[in-house]
Design a protein around this nucleic acid. Structure first.
Lengths: 144, 144
DNA sequence: ATCTATTCAGACATAAAAGTCTTAAATAAT
DNA sequence: ATTATTTAAGACTTTTATGTCTGAATAGAT
């Protein structure tokens, strides 16, 4: 993954939630155990996602997390931007300078196309797309 | 920058060296001062680059660093791979699984195209290209 | 009402990245 | 030979990312 562990865990947890019945509450430990990722860390990540209205939670005995809306309505860009500083990807490969269309670097530096590709991918795909990928893999028994 | 500080400093330092007379020795402090980056840290980075034969060094009174070959012969992939684990970029956006052409993920997941774009950029460009970018910017007085 | 499972919130701990410092070894100039 | 300058190497510190723990708040079950 080119992003942090937090983003990786978030994407996996969200796909997990997408695969459950839409109204089911899923406990942090249930998710963490199923995905084999650190439970308390996932808890913090889910709280961040909750603040951005990507998941909903309820406390108490049968509490847990669920998606705040349908997977197709949850864009990857929105998810990733919760946990990553995507401003980084607006910088030129060369250094910290910003690289925009009205600056010559963007003409010379094809890096611009690369970073637009990354950002575009995130903007044009949703959780539903990721979910489909995982389903394909499961169907074909792609090993860990 | 999507890469680490070390990579950023390395690219800047190498472009700096490319702009000097080919046989000149350039001291770490001279480079670090010119680029306003931490001197001792740069020293370690240059040692890593030396071990990979990207720069040469000589000790003593009029010692310093210089490029081991012409800028056009120094590929960005070679430089970046010294300081980054580029294996990361072969992983699927979804998780740590490897995503290759003979696996279904690569057909569904356009992420594959994104990461090939990144890797391809590095493989198809050299220090000389970066140097040209910097020259353009300097000529047009692009501010910091 | 009480018990218990659960999230919430934040403090705490560990690991990795980034940066600093010190000392040794090499070499050119004096 | 001595000295000043420079890289080489590694220990050390700081900062950020990752991960853990604890206790309080909440709400369903009994």
């Amino acid at each position: 993954m080119i992003y942090s562990k937090a983003t990786e865990y978030a994407l996996n947890a969200l796909v997990y939630l997408a695969e459950q019945a839409p109204d089911d509450r899923n406990g942090v430990h249930q998710i963490a155990d199923a995905l084999d990722i650190p439970g308390h860390f996932l808890g913090k990540i889910l709280q961040d996602l909750r603040k951005e209205k990507i998941v909903e939670s309820s406390r108490g005995r049968s509490g847990g997390f669920r998606l705040a809306r349908a997977p197709a309505e949850i864009g990857l860009y929105d998810v990733v931007s919760v946990l990553e500083d995507l401003q980084r990807y607006e910088m030129c490969i060369f250094d910290e300078y910003e690289c925009t269309v009205d600056r010559p670097c963007s003409m010379v530096c094809e890096w611009n196309a690369v970073k637009n590709h990354i950002t575009g991918f995130l903007q044009n795909h949703s959780l539903a797309d990721l979910q489909m990928v995982r389903q394909f893999r499961a169907d074909l028994d792609i090993p860990k």
